[in-house]
Structure formats: structure tokens, C-alpha cells
Design a protein around this nucleic acid. Sequence first.
RNA 1: GGCACGGUGGCCGAAUGGAAUAGGCAAAGGUCUGCAAAACCUUUUAUAGCGGUUCGAUUCCGCUCUGUGCCUCCA
Length: 487
Amino acid sequence: MNHHSKNTIKNNLKIYNSLTKKKDIFYPIYPNHVGMYVCGPTVYNHIHLGNCRTFIFFDIVYRYLKHLGYQVKYVRNITDIGHLFSENNELEEDKIIKRSRIEGLDPMEIVQKYTIYFHESLNILNVLRPNIEPIATGHITEQIEYVKKILCNKFAYEKNGSIYFDLKNYSNHFLYGRLSNNNIKELMDRNFLFSKEKRDIKDFCLWKKAKKNHIMNWNSPWGKGFPGWHIECSVMSTKYLGGYFDIHGGGIDLKFPHHECELAQSTSFFNKKNDLSRYWMHVNMLNINGEKMSKSKKNFMYPSHIYENFKISSNILRFFMLQTHYRSILIFSNKNLLDAKKNYNFIINSINKLNNVKFHKDIISYDFIHQWIDDCYNAINDDFNTPLLISYLLKGSRIINDIIINNKKNSLYLLKKYINYFMFEILGFKKNKEETNNYKKKLEILVQRLINLRKEYRIQKNWEVSDKIRKELNHIGILINDHKLLK
RNA sequence: GGCACGGUGGCCGAAUGGAAUAGGCAAAGGUCUGCAAAACCUUUUAUAGCGGUUCGAUUCCGCUCUGUGCCUCCA
């Protein structure tokens, strides 16, 4: 009665594709190989919780594809150039340059500093590193070559040392707006600073001429300048994954214009209809107080805020994010975070109990356990429905408790095997390791001695002193939960 | 103005053309207990509104109300 053969599971993964606007069965271009590109951060600031959501989600995608036996090439870029910051339609300045001015550091020091923070933040969240992490400024030559080809194909034009994408000519040959369903004519006109140079107000920049005081600039056939925002992703994805790969992802706010422009650039580059990626995936936003958490709205929180202010671990933050489906808006609130904590602890406690129980490998197979395993796989296979999967993991935990408490003979072996797969391998929770820090270890011993001391007082029924010790420990965040005293 | 995704109990959050068995939190009750807490077990409550299609709609279609996001800074 074993329903969950690996191939059946593998052939039933459905992914919501922003390009086709429906759930498509996942099959890669080359059997057993998956190429995945995810738009990474611009490293001019710390990453906040909203950014983390996207990277945690694609970590699940990466982990699950590997679990299914695919060889995955995961590429996630670092943007260290090209994002212009506009204020009141007055000034345009590279975000990294602006930040370097504020902090009094060299632009490349800013890049280095926030790249390190980015990696550290994701490490703490147990997000796996991609296979390739290309950096935009490391691919200037390739970007220039790419722009040259688009120019050569007549889908771009030069004006005063800058290169703009020719949307009008593009529209004559291809459809612009396939991802977002946006019709160029229906888009709102805004006054852009560059608009004087552009043939059409909605043309976007491929290469921008550097002003005299613009520190980050490179030589090009069109003079000193720097690449536009969208070009780096087209170039680096094509370089490392080819002109057509399996999955392209990012936050939903990148769908338009960023991904739409990438699609247009790629089509112009090859001069033929091209999807760039077979599946396009977009993660919805994290909302706080009814609106999107973003750097520009200044309503963001960093992961470190959460660990400190809510006294929760990175595992619980991760769990919190996975309790909402990735295509839904995730609402940040104190209560939701505490719900996540309780649920997470419930599952982990059950797993810990399993580790303390001795059992033999099952001989009999139990149908309901197999059903439970199928349910779990079906959940994750249905467009990565992590909230549904978590509900099954909670159910599994309850089954474990029931078996252990009532001393039932049952299929603990399979339960243990699969709940571990789902929690640690696929959902990517960190297994608690022994603390290696020596100083911390001594503190732990001290606390343990206090607890033992208190136990002696309890045996003597000296409630006054034992309650006082418990209170003191509670003050510093160590919770004591008493059990019945053994005689 | 255009485009996209939503509206399910007190709250969060799944699913579905055929009795709402999701799940969790909260609440209530219980086990346990020196007390407190924790842990574990059990139970209650819901498809925004109006039409249409249908034997049957929460699900599909249309309209209304309403929320969020994108429209060249954004994960």
C-alpha cells in the first residue's frame, strides 16, 4: 500500500506560473536538472523581514527540488549598481553612492558591508547559499555586449551617451506586458527626469551616461557610464543558466516593471519570442499595519529586532513565514508570531520525544501512516502549500504523542523518518546543536546548579525559597515548568 | 485611470461544483499539580452583498461593496 513512490511524487509537483497564470505541472527542460534564478538584494542596506520572506521561500523550493532528486543550479544575484534613487523628480542618485555619502564610506565598502550582513542574516535563518551568486559590477563587460546586441537588433537607441530600450519598435514585433498583463497605453504617465531624452516616456534605460560626479562608472562604446537596473539579471541569468531555463523568481513587486523588462530585453537579444524562463514565480508581500513593509515606507523590521523584542528563535521566524502561502499577503503581528512559536514548539517537542523512545523498525505497515505521508507530499506538491503541510505536521505530532502516551504499538519508524524529512530537510529548520561556546557553557552549568538547588528546596517543601528562585530565573527569561516530585 | 491578487468563525489560515472533519490561536472543560506555569487530551463558532448558470454554488460567471499590491526606488 505504498503510494508515495518518489517518481510519482516528482511528477506531480505543480507550480503557479505567473506567465500562464495557472498551476502547471513542473517538468524541467533537461531531465533531472533544474536551473533557477532568483533576484537578490541591492546591498545598500540591511535586509528586512519582507526580503527574508522571499529568500526563505525560494530556499524551500531549492531544498524540495533537491529532495526530489533534481540536480539544481541555483543562481541568485547581488545588485551593487544601477538602482537610481529619485526624490521629488529632482535628483537621481545611485542608492549605493547615496549610502556611501551618508556613512562616509567608499561605495565598495558599502557593498561589502551589506553583502556580509545579507549573508549573515540568511545564515541565521538557515537559508542555503545558492550555487552561484554573481555580482552586477563583476559583469560589466557582458552587460555592454548584451546592450550592443540589442542595439544591433534595433530594439534600442542611443541618446547623449545613454542607451534606451525602444518600446515602440519592440511592440511592433513582440508583445510587451505578457507577465503583468499591462498594456503600455494604459499605464500611467509620470514625469520622469530622463523623459527628455527618451523617444517614448515609458522607454527604460539599458545604459546610463555617468555625470561628472558619478563615482561608479565604466568605459563603454558610448562613453563613461553604468548599466541600467534590469539589464544585469538578463545578462547573468543567461550567462549561468542559458537563454532559456526553468524557474525565475522574486518578489511580486518585481513582476512589473523589472521582470517584464527582463523578458523584453531577452526577447530583443535573441530577436525571437522567448519566455526566458519556463516558470515565473512571485512571492507576495509582507504587510504590517495594513501596508507593505518596505524600505521606502520606513515601516520595516530587521530579523534581529524580532529575535530580541519577541524572544523567539530564527526557526520560529521561519515557521511564522511558512504558515501563510507564498502567494498570499503575509500579515505581520505580535500574535501571529506567538501562534507560530506555540505551533513550532509543539512539533519540535514531539520530535524530541521520538528521539527518547526506543523502537524497532516496523514490520507491519500502517495504512494511515502512509496516508499521512501522502498528505504531506500532496501539500508541498500543490504549489508549495506550506501552511497545509504544517497542518499535517501538527497532526503527525499529535499522532506521535498519542502513540507514546498510550504506549501503542505503531509505525513510529516511518513517522520519525518523514517528519524529520519535512521539518529539517525540506522546510529547512535548524537542528539545535550543542552550544560550543565555553563561557556560555559555564553559565548553563551555573543555571543547572541553581535548578538542582531549587529541587532540593522543593523536596524539603521550602516553597518560599524555591518560588523565589523560580521567579528570579523567570526574570532573565529562563522558564521553569515543574513536574510532580518523584518520591 | 490600467493591471494583478484577495474578502471563510472572536483572530490567523487551508480546502472545495455534492453534508464546511483542515489546522492553529483564543475561549470552555478535563488530566496533572504544594502553588503558578507548562505539557497533554476533549469541545464550541464561519464562506462580504446581490443576481446568473446548475439537480445542487462557498467554489464557475456578472455586478456591487471592500482590502492589498504594481504602474519605472523596492523581495
